[in-house]
Nucleic acid binder design. Structure first.
Length: 303
DNA sequence: TTAGGGTTACAG
DNA sequence: CTGTAACCCTAA
């Protein structure tokens, strides 16, 4: 058969990175079983994953991490010792210069109880806010997620305090009224508005925010239709007829495609540079992957 | 199934 | 020819 060397695409690499970030190094089969990743990696075997991961790391250890491994000394942030694993972000922060990459088979983060405290919330971002946003984002349900689903997700990822459910309800309500979340039919989704950073190189933007909006791939402000509007349309789809929803979905997909292309360009650009640019590339690739999956979800929603 | 050593294909 | 990436083999 076509026994030609099948070179890895950036999508596949992104999927692999995301998979490693999610399930840890060595759990290749688990990565392949991941519903989000299995579609992109469907032509790869667990051995392929292993080999590819080895190759990618060989590159890092032999070329750049040889002298000053201090490449990833950024993103310090006196935050809790809790790794955010929203996308392939943990990969970004941890394995860039390390031969022994993250060994967290299950990304459980023990969050100190104080961190959950909502009493002195700064009105904008609290720890729980970010976790909720991340949960909704990762749950990736096109029509939004129920409170119980969100709670379930968070409980799997963290160790929330016993009164967590109460806190969550309050926070969700809070976020909904403040406009950061949209509540549609008892389901919550990310609100379509998010301030954009402009006039910077894609690399910079990608490296900037980790806590706010992981999928903020800049310069959509320059486009006529922004992602915000796409999201708004998605919300409207919930109350649309099938035809109208299909049209809106097609529109949304087209838009996502443009963003994906942009992310790919950013990834390419990052590739040229060294060190932290690598992190940016990984992030961009992960973003591309996520958008792709979102596309599938959107298409299914209208079927 | 995985880790690691080895081999083949391809690019420079 | 040399280095790299994809692929293969096998012990554990």
């Amino acid at each position: 058969m076509g026994a030609l060397k099948q070179r890895w695409t950036s999508e596949e690499e992104a999927a692999l990175r995301a998979g490693v970030a999610r399930h840890g190094v060595g759990n290749w089969r688990m990565i392949l079983n991941d519903p989000e990743l299995s579609s992109t990696l469907r032509y790869r075997s667990n051995v392929d994953l292993k080999d590819k991961w080895r190759n990618m790391n060989v590159i890092v250890t032999s070329s750049s991490a040889r002298d000053r491994g201090r490449t990833s000394t950024r993103r310090t942030r006196a935050a809790p010792k809790n790794n955010d694993h929203s996308l392939a972000l943990s990969t970004v922060t941890s394995d860039v210069d390390d031969e022994i990459v993250d060994v967290n088979p299950i990304p459980i983060a023990s969050v100190p109880v104080e961190a959950w405290n909502t009493s002195k919330s700064k009105k904008s971002h609290s720890r729980l806010d970010n976790i909720i946003m991340e949960a909704i984002k990762n749950l990736n349900e096109p029509t939004g997620s129920h409170r119980t689903t969100i709670a379930n997700y968070i409980e799997e990822q963290y160790w929330p305090p016993s009164d967590f459910d109460h806190l969550l309800s309050a926070k969700l309500k809070d976020l909904a009224t403040s406009g950061k979340l949209l509540k549609v039919n008892r389901k919550y989704r990310i609100a379509p508005s998010s301030p954009r950073i402009e006039g910077r190189s894609p690399k910079m933007m990608l490296l900037e925010d980790v806590q706010g909006e992981p999928l903020k791939l800049g310069s959509d402000a320059s486009r006529t239709l922004t992602r915000s509007q796409v999201d708004a349309e998605l919300v409207r789809m919930a109350t649309m007829t099938a035809e109208a929803a299909a049209a809106a979905a097609a529109h949304a997909v087209a838009e996502a495609e443009a963003i994906m292309a942009e992310a790919e360009a950013a990834a390419r650009e990052a590739e040229a540079a060294e060190g932290e640019a690598r992190a940016a590339q990984a992030f961009a690739e992960a973003a591309v992957l996520t958008l792709k999956n979102r596309n599938s979800a959107k298409l299914m929603a209208q079927a």
